[in-house]
Design a protein around this nucleic acid. Structure first.
Lengths: 200, 200
DNA sequence: ACGGTGACATACTGGTTGGTATGTCCCGTG
DNA sequence: CACGGGACATACCAACCAGTATGTCACCGT
């Protein structure tokens, strides 16, 4: 296994280049509309090379998912385990997930648009990981509810789905060349989330 | 043009059947994964029939979009023009869009997942209509803001995108066989929206 | 020096796909 | 009753596509 330990070449390794081009192309035109031939040409390699590292086109898509899941989970964990009271941590977590999302819009476009194109087994795998992620976020909300900092008139998991829906939707309208930075947007979204959880 | 004026046959017209099966299949497996052959077989007609009513496969997808846009817009207009103060109307509008969404989950799955598969011109057309829809919703929020019923610390269009993101996401997790009815969910979502707009 | 293995390149295939050209039937109109 | 046109049915095609079989070659441990 080429453990991405590059020593001689300066440019990214073949699998890395494949993954990068796949992300760009899948996000731009959709998984089914990108042919393997086109993909390998964009990455400057041949089909033989691609099928040497990935067992199928599906496998390449799955690799994108794995990268996204890993990144998001590690970032959330950092914030959740960080200091501050629950309000601060939830605000930080919400703002961070927005920033990470707009910084990786291609990933997010693929994530939500192409899930049904993965093999059923891999879909389940992705959903399982995603659920763990949501549960970590939810635990933060539940903590605030039990402390009485947040009201609990609406089930926490509905709030989580509500918020992540808003975040997910970013990939459909947010343009990084607009006037709104990811940090600003993150602050707004976090404010909206906290406002909707505020006690009277 | 067969203006859907059916007189003799009891069963839906050929174009209606095509549209219904297209909605079901596109939502279930994705536009690119449904072949025209398969689609016409499901509708019990032949390719010749389909290409008689629709100029292309793309045209059929567009027809789904037109139906959705028209339905949503007319429902929102009814609520907006209805009586009550701005809080009541916004709550009703939010709850209604949730209910309509969960009642037409297939439409929504297609709407957000397949937009990029439409021809560029038609994508623009859909986005234009969608913007009009958002603007109508936004006008309600702005009305509340200028009346001082809602705070205006966050731009209204961000609130709109935030809320519709949450609604859009429903197609990714809501199951109609679950324990939560569309009306209940609509109430929760509307409550969350209003809570996040409440003045101190 | 040699045998093997990982890292690719090249060439090819069987199956599918959206779209079209052409034909047929039926029904209202003059 | 001729006939024109709408509503389909049938047959067909050129393009493409994911995946594979096979070949090549550099390097590396023995």
């Amino acid at each position: 296994m080429t453990q991405s330990v590059e020593s001689k070449t300066v440019s990214p390794s073949v699998p890395d280049r494949l993954l990068a081009e796949a992300t760009r192309l899948f996000a731009q035109r959709g998984f089914d509309r990108v042919s393997v031939q086109e993909l390998v040409e964009a990455a400057g390699v041949t089909k033989g090379a691609m099928y040497h590292y990935f067992t199928s086109k599906d496998d390449l898509l799955f690799a994108v998912y794995q990268r996204v899941l890993k990144l998001q989970m590690s970032r959330l964990r950092q914030v959740v385990e960080g200091g501050g009271d629950v309000t601060e941590r939830l605000h930080a977590a919400a703002a961070d997930v927005v920033r990470t999302t707009v910084d990786n819009l291609d990933d997010m476009v693929i994530f939500f648009r192409s899930l049904h194109m993965l093999s059923p087994g891999r879909q389940r795998e992705v959903r399982r990981e995603r659920r763990k992620y949501h549960e970590l976020f939810r635990s933060l909300i539940e903590e605030g509810m039990s402390e009485g900092v947040f009201h609990d008139k609406i089930p926490a998991d509905i709030v989580v789905n509500y918020f992540f829906g808003a975040v997910h939707h970013l990939s459909m309208w947010y343009r990084s060349d607009g006037e709104l930075s990811g940090a600003q947007l993150g602050a707004h979204y976090a404010d909206l989330l906290l406002a909707s959880l505020r006690t009277d």
